[in-house]
Amino acid sequence: MTISDENVGEGRTSDLATGAAWMRGEIMPIAQASIPVNDWRLIHSDITYDVVPVWEGAFFRLELYLDRFFRSMNSLRLNPGVTESDVRSVLHGLVSATGLRRAYVAMVTSRGVNMVPGSRDPRDCRNHFFAWCVPYIHVIRPDLARSGASVHIARTVTRIPETSVDSRVKNYHWGDFTKGLFEAKEAGAETVILLDSGGNVTEGPGFNVFAVKNNRLITPDASVLEGISRQTVLEIGRDLGLQTKIRPLPLDELLESDEVLITTSGGGVAPITKVDDRVFSNDTPGEVTMSIQKRYFEWAMQPAYRTEIDYVS
């Protein structure tokens, strides 16, 4: 699987700069990308994906995202017939074609269409890979990533248990998140955090959660995606001299924290200054959080973590 020079050359157009997709060997405006109505991605949410950020003209920690994407495909028994080298080539060519220096880039594998009429056997589906990118997405609005966001703890829904959907496999099973988001918005909060059935903090739609308390950086160990941004912040925390803990995080402990922050590929690190009625740091971002946020974007510019993109002139 390769991207032809012709396709890449055609890509540097204004319509691609607002979003582009790679499908079946071609780059196209994202509005032209489509899948069949009977694709199992659509009718069964039978799919995995991953998202790697592009920051100032380079992928950030690309190899970690590729590794997780292929682990997810293996876990779901998806095989679209592509290698890591193939996917890497597609992502480079796609971003180069758009000219975007800051981008949100998705790699996706769907179960696809069942090739045997009437069959419900997933082995009869033809798996397929595609990719798309759009200008950089912030899960938390940039102004709130500076001043601090509010979060609601969902009460009407808990996180899907790991025995049902493996949270380590990036997926589109957002029924619990969507219900929680409606609840959060109606409560006047920016986003939502879900608990598990035992009352422990899990994650939110598109982000991991951290608590800061007494020089400790704590993040939940179960019912969460093992995020690359989460991994980066754990490494940064140790670099800053913090004790890092991956373990159960009861809601009461979160509410007694000194600071709360979230991590996401769509924005890096964002401070949370309010959880329900609990206000942190006088409703301003905490010192530890802002140190971690600053270090995250410093790392995003370090050659050791960057894979530069060769943009077509």
Rank of each mutant, 00 (worst) to 15 (best):
M1Q: 11
D5P: 09
D5Y: 12
D5S: 15
E10R: 14
G11L: 07
T18L: 11
E26S: 10
M28R: 12
A33Y: 12
V37K: 13
D39S: 07
L42I: 07
D46H: 03
T48A: 03
V52E: 03
P53V: 07
V54Y: 01
G57M: 04
A58G: 14
F60R: 02
L62R: 03
Y65I: 04
M73C: 12
N74S: 14
R77V: 10
V82A: 03
E84V: 10
S85R: 14
V90E: 09
H92Y: 10
L94P: 01
A103S: 07
V105G: 01
A106H: 08
V108Y: 02
V108K: 03
V108W: 00
T109R: 04
T109Q: 05
G112P: 03
V113Y: 01
V116I: 15
D121S: 13
R126C: 10
R126D: 13
R126M: 15
N127Q: 09
A131M: 13
W132L: 13
W132D: 04
H138C: 01
V139S: 06
I140V: 15
I140E: 01
D143C: 04
D143F: 05
A145E: 08
A149M: 13
S150Q: 00
V151L: 15
H152E: 11
H152F: 12
T158M: 09
S164L: 13
D166Q: 10
K170I: 10
Y172Q: 14
T178P: 00
K179R: 15
G188K: 04
A189R: 04
D196M: 12
S197N: 07
G199I: 11
N200G: 04
V201Y: 05
T202S: 08
G204R: 06
G204V: 11
P205G: 08
A211K: 00
N214A: 15
R216Y: 04
L217Q: 02
A222R: 14
V224M: 09
V224P: 06
E226C: 09
G227N: 03
S229E: 06
R230L: 03
T232F: 03
P250Y: 02
D252R: 14
L254T: 01
E256N: 13
S257H: 04
S257P: 12
E259V: 08
I262P: 02
T264K: 01
G268Y: 05
T273Q: 11
V275Q: 01
D276C: 12
D276M: 05
S281L: 08
N282Q: 13
P285L: 11
P285N: 10
M290N: 10
S291Y: 00
E298V: 12
Y305C: 10
R306F: 02
